[in-house]
Design a protein around this nucleic acid. Structure first.
Lengths: 330, 330
DNA sequence: CTGAAAGCGCTTACAG
DNA sequence: CTGAAAGCGCTTACAG
């Protein structure tokens, strides 16, 4: 492997001239061509460490993900990667397997690797997160959760919950079960539920009950429909598509028909929800767009530019087959 | 941010002593403690570039993935990340969006970043891949596809195809449609089909027809069942779970019942296949295991150790509800 | 437009 | 066990 000194010697110029050529500094046409020839000839590639060591910055953005095998994560990463590439950055991905301890650890590890910035696909922000983030002195962007002191990009969970509530009410349903997740997850466990509450609380003759489950389709499929006891909702609003998929499975297993016996909805807009039978009514979030925006934001932060502390990503209700129209009592 | 010189000064020793402490060289107990104190006090972290520049190696493994949003990729990455972490390596992920051009480009980019090794989640290996890989002088491991000149880790696609063929025949099916993908994908498009052929070709009174589709559930759902024309198979063997999911949807859309009117099978063992209605009979590959093994292998290659050029990962047939038992003509 | 020199923050023989 | 010095491969003022 050749280094810049070799190239300089072969081209008959100084190292600094080669460096200038590489970085778009002013170099005469003749010199430029000479260097160019040598570089293509030798296949020379500058050593990224030496560059980074000297320039004190890297073109790597670290991404911390709690869960690699979810549609949401994949789509968000695709968006991030795409925009990062356009901005000439690379993506160092670190998987935490939903382990908060490991999340904190990774913040320090990435800092040590001198990444230019960090995007944290967050599920829960603890004080230790905040402390780690403040210690490392590297820009950090939260995606999916919001914290007052850290730049955040979130989906419009509360509004989405509200829209879903409105929709279900409009379809005439009045006995509703909301199947949510732990409130430690503010975005999914609290915001979506709150929005739903806001949409349904002033509706006449409407009974809503709230339940909690693990956000894992297998467990939901196995247990979800047993938690209602003697309550028989006409519609089941699930806080994620995964939960909804499990719930539909559970319904079939019990011999119930969706939506004839039970309407089911999700949140997310996972591709698979269009393939289900019946196709799932859900909230479409725009993960790829959010990922791109996240990449834009972290790079702006890296460059010292100013961005809003909190940004919302859009959503849309996708009405499909899993919700029945009922005649509501007036 | 402090550097090694600051630490040395504060501890009253030479930089080389601090370096030795950091790298586990021989340092007296007293000195060790002094340095330790200063480091925890200052929160000092060595600059990874300077380390890498000098030591001429990094702890980063580059991963090139064609498609981030597939169960297979996610699971494989989880396995890779997990084992890489155990071996003290980090994972630089680069997404190519199934663009071969970008795949080649990424090989060079990662080489420039001086990653210690590269894992390529491959779909197709062209001459240009081979050339790029030979040029960069960094160990490369192929996962999912096999090439004679490059270390490869593959699923046992041919055997899996064979096992699926045997299984379908055992269930009494004799009018079979195999819905495969382009032969440019050797593992999925050629090997699985060949295995299936081997299992079915000597069976009496058995008619098998081969079709090709895009490996995308939406397209399959829209078109898959129209390509048979006047051929009415009792079983449809799909080369991937995605295709099978699309095919089941297509069947429902046409008012057919699975498996009563048409049995359907997949390959992969995606989590969602257990949640479908009916649950899908498929081949389970062990992606996480494969990922871990891939991580082991690339690190062994990085360390100059010898590993076999070709390694197979296991599989298993998962018999579920999407295949009917028929009485075969004898 | 070009070159010589210093320095980024480490590690590694080498000498003691 | 410890330290002084050289060097990894770049970039960046600075001077010309």
């Amino acid at each position: 492997m050749k280094n810049i000194a070799d190239i300089a010697k072969l081209a008959g110029v100084a190292k600094s001239t080669v460096s200038r050529y590489l970085n778009g500094g002013s170099v005469s046409e003749v010199t430029k061509r000479k260097i160019e020839d040598i570089i293509t000839e030798t296949g020379y590639m500058p050593n990224a460490f030496a560059q980074s060591l000297k320039a004190k910055k890297t073109n790597i953005i670290g991404i911390i993900v709690p869960q690699l095998d979810s549609y949401e994560t994949s789509q968000t990463l695709i968006g991030i990667d795409q925009q990062l590439r356009a901005l000439n950055y690379l993506m160092l991905v670190s998987h935490t397997n939903r382990n908060l301890e490991r999340e904190i650890e990774n913040i320090y590890t990435l800092a040590k690797q001198k990444v230019a910035g960090i995007i944290l696909l967050a599920t829960q922000i603890t004080d230790r997160h905040v402390q780690a983030i403040s210690e490392i002195d590297i820009p950090v962007l939260l995606v999916g959760q919001h914290h007052d002191e850290i730049h955040s990009l979130v989906h419009h969970d509360e509004e989405a919950g509200y829209a879903m509530g409105k929709y279900i009410i409009e379809q005439g349903h009045r006995r509703l079960a909301f199947l949510g997740v732990s409130e430690t997850d503010i975005a999914v466990g609290v915001k979506r539920k709150e929005g739903f509450k806001r949409a349904t609380r002033d509706v006449n003759n409407c009974e809503v009950r709230y339940f909690e489950t693990k956000a894992n389709m297998r467990e939901v499929a196995a247990n979800a429909l047993d938690i209602f006891n003697d309550f028989f909702p006409s519609a089941l609003i699930c806080a994620t598509d995964e939960i909804a998929i499990g719930a539909v499975k559970a319904a079939y297993t019990k011999g119930m028909h969706v939506p004839a016996n039970l309407s089911v909805t999700g949140f997310g807009g996972y591709e698979i929800t269009a393939m289900m039978h019946p196709a799932l009514t859900t909230v479409q979030f725009y993960f790829i767009e959010a990922g791109k925006k996240a990449a834009d934001h972290i790079v702006q932060l890296v460059n010292g530019q100013d961005i809003p502390m909190l940004t919302y990503s859009n959503f849309e209700i996708i009405a499909r087959e899993s919700v029945d129209k009922r005649f509501a009592p007036s």
